[in-house]
């Protein structure tokens, strides 16, 4: 085996390792959406049990926080947020954008829970926030999952091609 052949085989081994690593990373990325959904579901369960866990706000704290926004205003904002977030995800699906599922949505949704809680209408609006979160996160997760799966198939095809080439070259060398 010449030096050139040895170095080529090493490069191919490196390429194979890189491809395997890329497939592993893509698999992990495809599951990230599920983790985000699980985190949001856990947060929502905590919020649902909030009345039993958290002590009620004292009048002093309420006075310090000031007048809360009206529930109609928060609901209108929630609908605008849901509409724009769904549009953004659909845009990403159309452009096959590789942007991953963002945990920031959980932050926004927790803010909605907090506002409804401070306005004293959380129990009436809990399901609306839950439906918003689940819709946005499921759409994002589905997009990332399909995108990652397509990439994984591409990488697996390249890997199969590389392994076939490596096998052929070994056969020739023998």
């Amino acid at each position: 085996m010449t030096n050139q052949e040895t170095s080529r085989e090493l490069t191919q081994i490196d390429q194979r390792a890189a491809l395997l690593e890329s497939i592993r990373r893509l698999h992990a990325r495809s599951h990230r959406g599920m983790w985000t959904i699980a985190a949001f579901a856990f947060t929502s369960v905590l919020v649902m049990l909030g009345d039993r866990i958290l002590p009620p706000l004292t009048p002093e704290v309420k006075k310090m926080l000031g007048t809360p926004p009206t529930s109609n205003m928060i609901s209108a904002l929630l609908i605008v947020y849901a509409f724009s977030a769904i549009l953004l995800v659909l845009g990403r699906i159309t452009n096959a954008s590789p942007k991953t599922v963002s945990f920031s949505h959980i932050g926004y949704l927790v803010c909605f829970y907090a506002f409804y809680y401070l306005s004293g209408v959380l129990s009436e609006n809990f399901w609306a926030v839950l439906a918003t979160g689940m819709t946005i996160l499921c759409l994002e997760s589905y997009h990332i999952w399909t995108l990652s799966m397509a990439k994984i198939r591409e990488e697996e095809e390249t890997l199969a091609l590389l392994e076939r080439r490596m096998g052929l070259e070994r056969g020739h060398n023998r």
Binding site: S75, A82, N125, A128, A131, C138
Partner: peptide, 17 residues
């Protein structure tokens, strides 16, 4: 998913309002 989710959000919010 988008249509079902958005209609559900609107209906839940509208019902609450």
């Amino acid at each position: 998913l988008a249509v079902t989710g958005f209609v559900a959000i609107c209906c839940l919010s509208l019902y609450s309002i």
